[in-house]
């Protein structure tokens, strides 16, 4: 009974969601790497344990539920209990929350202004991506990317773009029976129809019966060599800049 009461009091006290502080996130990262990454992956991508970036187990749990899971483990699963002090569990939680939280909501290292310079300059990002209407159409719109993705997925998209391709952005060339050739991204295609957007933004609605030959580029057309072409500081700043992109800004 006393334990139950203690748990209830504890739950009430913990229900308040702690703000994510930079130092907690950094300390939590260290602890995560030694205690959690073995099962949940170095970036939280999952493995023996569930994905902590895109999975709903974390993002939909209240702080108290997460805390209990960290402290006592989860019965019937491989998630073990731990003897770490509560203070350290809070730090792990801060880091784990950050894995699935929109990047905009968590502290991110780097220089946003310098990142903007990389984005608009050396990185060449505007060739394909738009922010607030400025930029190309071949890549996904990045105006609110800080709200739409957790930090690790933004990092992954910059450093390893071929890993996930946003639907509607596959590069393709369609040779039509009329002799015309269309190049662009496939917003949609089925057995019967193609919706191709060319570099000017124009949409082409094409029936499959009118297509003589199609070339759909496998993988991502985005450069996969930013590790070589950008310095570590430039990559960090670019990721910081992206993490701050929000159409809404401060609420």
């Amino acid at each position: 009974m006393r334990i139950l009461l203690w748990l209830m009091v504890g739950a009430v006290a913990l229900a308040q969601r702690a703000p994510l502080k930079q130092e907690d996130v950094a300390a939590g990262r260290q602890l995560y790497m030694s205690s959690c990454a073995g099962c949940h992956g170095l970036s939280g991508e999952g493995g023996r344990g569930p994905n902590l970036m895109t999975g709903r187990a974390v993002s939909r749990s209240t702080d108290d539920v997460l805390f209990q899971a960290l402290k006592f483990g989860l019965a019937g699963t491989d998630m073990p209990p731990t003897n770490l002090p509560d203070e350290k569990l809070w730090q792990i939680m801060a880091y784990v929350r950050g894995l699935s939280a929109p990047a905009y909501e968590i502290p991110v290292e780097g220089d946003e202004k310098a990142g903007a310079a990389v984005y608009f300059g050396k990185g060449g990002c505007t060739k394909c991506h738009a922010i607030a209407g400025k930029g190309g159409v071949f890549g996904s719109d990045l105006t609110s990317i800080g709200h739409q993705r957790p930090l690790n997925l933004i990092r992954e998209a910059v450093l390893d773009p071929g890993r996930r391709i946003a639907p509607g952005y596959q590069r393709a060339t369609l040779h039509l029976k009329s002799g015309k050739t269309l190049e662009g991204v496939l917003r949609d295609y089925t057995t019967y129809n193609y919706t191709l957007q060319d570099g000017t933004g124009e949409l082409h609605f094409v029936k499959a019966v009118d297509v003589a030959d199609q070339r759909i580029l496998p993988g991502s057309p985005m450069p996969g060599n930013y590790r070589e072409t950008l310095t570590a500081a430039e990559r960090r700043d670019l990721i910081k800049f992206l993490s701050r992109q929000s159409a809404r800004g401060e609420q």
């Binding site: 738009a130 607030a132 209407g133 159409a247």
Partner: peptide, 16 residues
Amino acid sequence: CRLVALHRKTGAVLWH
């Protein structure tokens, strides 16, 4: 109560 403007062909956010 936000008016959102999107590019009609790409869906890109122009402003909120």
